[in-house]
Design a protein around this nucleic acid. Structure first.
Length: 293
RNA sequence: GGGUAGGUUGAGCAGGUGGUGAGCUCAGCUGACUGUAAAUCAGCCGUCUUCGACUGUAGAGGUUCGAUUCCUCUCCUGCCCA
């Protein structure tokens, strides 16, 4: 799509909105586009930090805010691609994710409380400290409760910040495979390709350098690769686990992308639909020239 | 051929020694989500007309008011003996 736009004189650039491709060294497991696959198109959002760095949606938003002015200055169009529904929404809808306070020390202390006293104790504290916030949070989800309590401790029971909005025009396209069996076959094919493409070596190298518990390594494939390396599962077991996790992930992505205001739904298994979507993007880019990247 | 342990909802299991088995894990399906998001969390997960009802413990019989349970035969699986 970026190539098509460029052929038409619109300098398109890609911004990856993928919470696992921001890490250096996670190339095979995350199917990060190779230099050849990038086809000379500038790609942002890739290889931003080492695997042991924390990189949150707010860091991503900051990165995108840093990149967009340059694209605008080149009279370009940004193609935000993903990936991570939360991250896409943060940019496209302008969620004020950075407007809420955070403090690693407070977070760590709450995590310790969670493992020591349990979720119910934290929920009680949250409901007492910030009933308004508590009403908006999934009180059964430890991650959410900890985060809400962190906010409550830092700024009290203030309402959540309203979305700022992206500010420029946005065309939303979703890509899915209509035939579920075909989709599964694609996923299985990719999993096998990654196995032959060096995911074991990648996983082994990362494991010797970093702790296995890092969020970066929750990317699908690493846990399975380590289990295969350790002889806990065989090749078939690796593939089954990998495909299964990817299917579950795809399911969650569908939930995100269905609830978004989608302009164009594309069946990735239909070449004609892909062509049509590209033409639609071209018309959109031409029609919105000068109104933001 | 003889003996022995088994056969429970897609897979793996729990339970059940005459009156409540639809319980668990995985897989699968659906959804939630404003700083871990490929994460985390929730619901569903035999069938149906779903606040309930019905069916279901390998199959067929038998005993009984009543059988997953006791009896008989058959089929299938593991192990031991020949």
């Amino acid at each position: 799509m970026a190539l098509a736009l460029r052929a038409d004189g619109i300098p398109a650039e890609v911004i990856s909105a993928d919470s696992r491709q921001v890490y250096r060294g996670t190339d095979v497991a995350t199917a990060k586009p190779t230099a050849a696959e990038r086809r000379g198109i500038p790609h942002h959002g890739l290889d931003l930090v080492d695997p042991d760095a924390l990189f949150s949606v707010a860091d991503f938003a900051e990165h995108v805010e840093g990149v967009l002015p340059g694209i605008a200055a080149r009279s370009g169009v940004a193609i935000l691609v993903g990936g991570t529904g939360f991250w896409l929404r943060a940019i496209a809808d302008g969620l004020a994710v950075d407007a809420l306070p955070w403090d690693p020390a407070v977070r760590a202390s709450l995590e310790a409380d969670l493992s020591e006293h349990g979720l119910d104790a934290l929920v009680a504290r949250l409901q007492a400290a910030a009933p308004g916030l508590a009403a908006r949070v999934d009180l059964r989800n430890p991650r959410r409760v900890v985060r809400a309590l962190e906010i409550a401790l830092l700024q009290g029971d203030a309402p959540l910040p309203a979305p700022r909005g992206y500010g420029g025009p946005v065309l939303r396209l979703t890509l899915d495979v209509a035939d579920r069996a075909e989709h599964r076959a694609w996923i299985a094919q990719r999993a096998a390709g990654q196995l032959d493409g060096g995911i074991l070596a990648e996983a082994q190298a990362l494991r010797t350098r970093y702790p296995a518990s890092l969020p970066a390594f929750s990317a699908i494939g690493y846990r399975e690769a380590w289990n295969l390396l350790d002889g806990l599962i065989d090749r078939a077991g690796y593939l089954a686990a990998n495909v299964s996790r990817n299917l579950a992930y795809a399911r969650r992505q569908r939930t995100w992308f269905r609830s978004a205001a989608v302009d164009v739904q594309v069946d990735a298994g239909d070449p004609a639909a892909l062509q049509l979507a590209t033409e639609r993007a071209l018309v959109f880019a031409q029609g919105t020239a000068g109104r933001g990247p």
